[in-house]
Design a protein around this nucleic acid. Structure first.
Lengths: 230, 230
DNA sequence: TAATGTATGATTGCATGCAATATAAACAGA
DNA sequence: TCTGTTTATATTGCATGCAATCATACATTA
């Protein structure tokens, strides 16, 4: 046993832990859009007092994951279709920038990492593992942003993807056709990356993100039609 | 006198007012980088209790304007030269996007507004009013982002410019030469805008922001050299 | 009956008190 | 003198209490 027992885990302040936990629940879809956040109720559930909870709520409001109406309380931010659209519009040039920066900095090991991650995703694709595909795709894009070496870009990107991923849970899966297209694009992308062709890779990435946004929006609209036609 | 006396002003929660006030002081440079924020001291100054202050501090931490070290306290975030660099790298594609979206949406009145704002800035330039020049330049860029009609873009942009503007207060003014170059670029920009030439305007905007970043970084480096050589 | 006013309960907003932690100052031993 | 330890003080972190506000139901009046 190391010198660190579980007493040392609590280095993070309570409000941080609470914010992390709530953020996770919101992004994962466990807490639905519009869900009311009753302070006393939540406090009892989490076994804490209202002060750190209220601080956590303020944090998540800045991240646009929670809405606070004065004297009325907090609720999980409603996620509008226009917002998802706006997020992908921004993500496209940001991920393009990330890729340009990353390719300018990466060493051979970095490029190999990208190739490996791509291969892992492709393996999921061939195994019909859609969840694995999604997770590896997210990891692939995150890795590129990390390799870019810009803390500001990383933080901005994380905030935007946190919000965009919320859309995933009220949208049906992509059609096989769209899935195939996305994979084909990724194939072209990794080739351009391994070729060290920054302009080509940059353009592919931008268009890929825009296209992903279109797919997500279509899925959401489809989901909404299915709901209303019931 | 209207029906609203000053009793109705307090609709905003205390923590919001406090956050706004602190943000303003940090962005304006009244609170210097690294300045310690003693809770009790600040509370007495502002005439409030610690609870809303602490909530405000959490808000500004998410905005990267304040750093909190657990059990050690909050301080105004140190602004590093690399951070300013990263911010302008991101602002360039974001403002390009903003201009593209804005030009696709603006009506003739919108275009006229842009022309008017440009003229106002040029007037300041000819009057050797550097402060006016700066403020009108900021307003010009903000107006474009507003016209883009994307709340997400607007919020992201506001956060980034808040942070970048902090650099202004520890950097010497631009040289006349750089000032001239910036104005010339603005002239080309407004012409492309009024021509409804989106690709041209888009490119000019992107390069203009990148160039502004270079200017700001050069100024900061110059300022640091002057300090250390004293 | 519709509209307005009033009272009650629930919930949030803010202030304060106590506990936990970090900084420093004082001190003891080598 | 230096180093390690202890003690004191200041400051933050968290919990709780009270005040302000809002929502609901009910009562009153036109």
């Amino acid at each position: 046993m190391t010198s660190n027992s579980n007493a040392t885990i609590n280095r993070a302040a309570l409000h941080t832990q609470v914010a992390d936990a709530l953020r996770d629940q919101i992004v994962r879809g466990d807490l639905e859009s519009g869900a009311r956040l009753n302070e006393i109720e939540l406090c009892e559930t989490m076994g804490i007092s209202r002060t750190p909870l209220r601080e956590a709520i303020k944090i998540l409001e800045v991240e646009s994951l929670i809405e606070i109406k004065p004297h009325k309380g907090a609720s999980v931010a409603e996620i509008r279709i226009e917002t998802i659209d706006e997020i992908f519009q921004i993500l496209a040039p940001l991920e393009r920038l990330a890729l340009e920066l990353a390719m300018a900095r990466m060493d051979d090991a970095g490029f190999q990492t990208m190739q490996d991650m791509h291969d892992t995703m492709i393996a999921c694709y061939h195994a019909q593992d859609r969840e694995g595909c999604f997770l590896n795709d997210v990891a692939f894009h995150n890795q590129i942003v990390s390799f870019a070496g810009s803390d500001v870009l990383k933080a901005t990107h994380t905030n935007l993807t946190n919000r965009s991923q919320r859309g995933r849970f009220f949208a049906p899966r992509f059609s096989q056709e769209k899935q195939d297209e996305a994979m084909a694009t990724h194939e072209k992308l990794i080739i351009a990356i391994m070729d060290r062709d920054i302009p080509a890779a940059s353009q592919i990435m931008h268009d890929h993100v825009v296209r992903t946004g279109v797919f997500v929006l279509d899925s959401i609209r489809l989901g909404q039609e299915q709901k209303t036609s019931k």
